[in-house]
């Protein structure tokens, strides 16, 4: 494979990379020029932050980003808790528990997220008096708890059977075995997929903008409807999500390294 080897030599690979990325950027830029798009990048910073006599003022985008972080953290905490319960039910010896867990999983996993959101906001909302924020939190938590419960289940199952037997042989109950022996060992199996899941959650949290919960995507839509700067704002919003998820992935990969060296 001489062609493959040639393409993989550093100078060729780097040049090729910049040619591809450059041409995509160029096509986008000329396309925008041709439609006579009026770039107003200088307008963007004020929506991120302003610096006045009162000092630093967070702009709408930063406030929205913060709301996205709060929403994601809340939902992730709830989803983890619910996911753990569902996984434990599924792995229990109770027939009813298993049945309930499987029913829940199949129901949640096989409905589009958007429909689930509408169910919570337009159906359960009026019945139980849920506001937008609560409906959004519940939707995201429920949806991701199903995915997280599968991560827990796989993590728990990857601990050797002998560990259960050893725990049982010193008289531990099932709950004690989970708490002291099984879960601490499954964490290192679960950490990588859980990172993936929180990144997934941050991204899917954008969907709650359809019920106008004031988070990053909603803020973007609002600014655009005032200013018509759709290119600049969507680029900025995308960048904000990207920075958030990249920082998170990096942080967790550091954490993972610590866990693997420890065991």
């Amino acid at each position: 494979m001489t062609l493959k080897r040639m393409l993989n030599t550093p100078p060729v690979a780097v040049t090729l990379y910049f040619v591809i990325v450059g041409s995509i950027a160029w096509v986008a830029y000329t396309g925008a020029q041709q439609m006579g798009y009026n770039w107003q990048w200088y307008q963007v910073p004020q929506y991120i932050y302003t610096f006045t006599d009162d000092g630093f003022q967070a702009g709408e985008i930063l406030t929205g980003l913060w709301a996205t972080i709060v929403l994601s953290v809340t939902c992730f905490a709830l989803a983890t808790l619910m996911g753990l319960c569902v996984a434990l039910l599924r792995l229990s010896s109770l027939v009813v528990g298993k049945g309930v867990a499987i029913g829940y999983l199949e129901f949640v996993r096989n409905i589009p997220l958007l429909v689930l959101l509408y169910l919570f906001y337009y159906v359960l909302g009026p019945i139980f008096g849920l506001d937008r924020w609560t409906a959004a939190v519940l939707t995201l938590s429920v949806f991701h708890s199903a995915l997280i419960s599968e991560i827990f289940r796989a993590g728990i199952n990857s601990v050797a059977v002998g560990q259960w037997e050893a725990a049982a042989s010193i008289g531990m109950s099932r709950a004690q075995a989970y708490r002291y022996i099984i879960l601490p060992q499954s964490i290192r199996f679960m950490l990588p997929p859980l990172t993936g899941e929180i990144v997934h959650l941050i991204k899917s949290s954008a969907i709650v903008s359809v019920i106008a919960v004031a988070e990053l995507t909603t803020v973007g839509r609002n600014i655009i409807s005032d200013t018509y700067m759709s290119f600049e704002i969507w680029f900025t919003i995308a960048l904000a999500y990207l920075v958030l998820t990249l920082i998170l992935s990096f942080g967790v990969s550091m954490l993972e390294r610590r866990f693997t060296t420890e065991t």
């Binding site: 050797a160 002998g162 560990q163 037997e165 060992q185």
Partner: peptide, 12 residues
């Protein structure tokens, strides 16, 4: 008390 062929110590 029980001792297993594969030891089954708690690795963590």
């Amino acid at each position: 008390g029980m001792v297993f062929q594969q030891f089954n110590l708690f690795p963590h």
